[in-house]
Amino acid sequence: MKLHDPVAPDDALADWRIADEPWYAPVGGEVAAFEAAHARGLPLMLKGPTGCGKTRFVEHMAWRLGLPLITVACHEDLSAGDLIGRFLLDGQGTRWQDGPLTRAVRHGAICYLDELVEARADTTVLIHPLTDARRQLPLAATGELLHAHPDFRLVVSYNPGYHGVHKSLKASTRQRFTALEFGYPDAAREAAIVMHECGVDEGIAKQLVTLAERTRRLAGDALDEGASTRMLIHAGLLIAEGLAPRTACLQAVAVPLSDDPEVVSALTALVDACIV
């Protein structure tokens, strides 16, 4: 395990530093790719299905590079103020409160915008001046032009699979990023991940992976997406906690995957076929 310098007492980003190594099993050259983008200060986009390990990878890389990580889960109501900051009122009057993006820009951290495509378009364009050579963030409310700290990095993720046509990134945003494509790990690696994360034995892990592979065949038809590695980890944790494997798989995989009773019924039969 790599150890980093102790946190300075006046460290504004102390809460966002990652002390312990987040476990991550590389599947290809993504670590070197991230490090290269980091070395050159290039923004990075991670594309891949839900629950395949994008967020864990970013956490791992932040720890590896010794940088604080500020994560923002984007959603359709995410406003510019939520990212940049806003004036707050207190007994003395108004005071400015940095938002997560501003904090990362000002003090130097990786700002990770998870599911960027969910954010409104007017929010997305905020990051444009940060993603080119200018590396600056104008704060209209305070009149401040914030130049990015040398350690500031921008990483975004999104899942191209289930978004509709109106939920794709604009070309003007998309072309500012270098990108890494993520997928589900191969069966052996995915089983190893499940074993590591849940402490279940190899037999159970393989059965869980078989189940996930089967559900992924239904993606785009009966299901929007198949079961993610995260779902398998949930199932594995329930099994490690003492639930019967079948019960755990119904709770963690079959029932959450769909609200359509017929699909859930098919998934239940599938669990019976895959899990003993």
């Binding site: 089967r214 239904l218 038809d221 019924s265 098919a266 599938l270």
Partner: peptide
Amino acid sequence: GSRPLGIYLDAL
């Protein structure tokens, strides 16, 4: 009940 059965076989 052919739809769940069809989905089941498709997944298998």
